[in-house]
Design a protein around this nucleic acid. Sequence first.
DNA 1: CTGTTGACCAAAT
DNA 2: TATTTGGCCAACA
Length: 105
Amino acid sequence: MQLSDALHNRVWQVLSQIPAGHVVTYGQLARMAGAPQHARAVGAILRQLPNGSGLPWHRVINSKGRLSFAEDSGAYRCQAERLKAEGIELCDGKIALGRYRWHGH
DNA sequence: CTGTTGACCAAAT
DNA sequence: TATTTGGCCAACA
């Protein structure tokens, strides 16, 4: 891995704490990991996440309450399906952040 | 080393 | 409400 191990580990740590049925945004996760200006780096970390990591990457969405994938992509459908399985519905392509956002402990 | 890309974001138009 | 703009920076070519 090339991203600073420290950031990588903190993101990994926070990600593992997100409860099922809740979501956080990339920027929020970056802040929670102590790197407020690194929303994009969080995306890069998730992108490189190993397949069998077991981490809830699908609970991370963008600040607009949308999934950061093209709607016609398999990744989009995969994430949407995983969220639906946790009771999180996409209304008009958007998630009600006010209702599902996780605010930490 | 330079330039581009992108699972981003907040503020300004 | 919808786009654009400027900032961010790791990964990649």
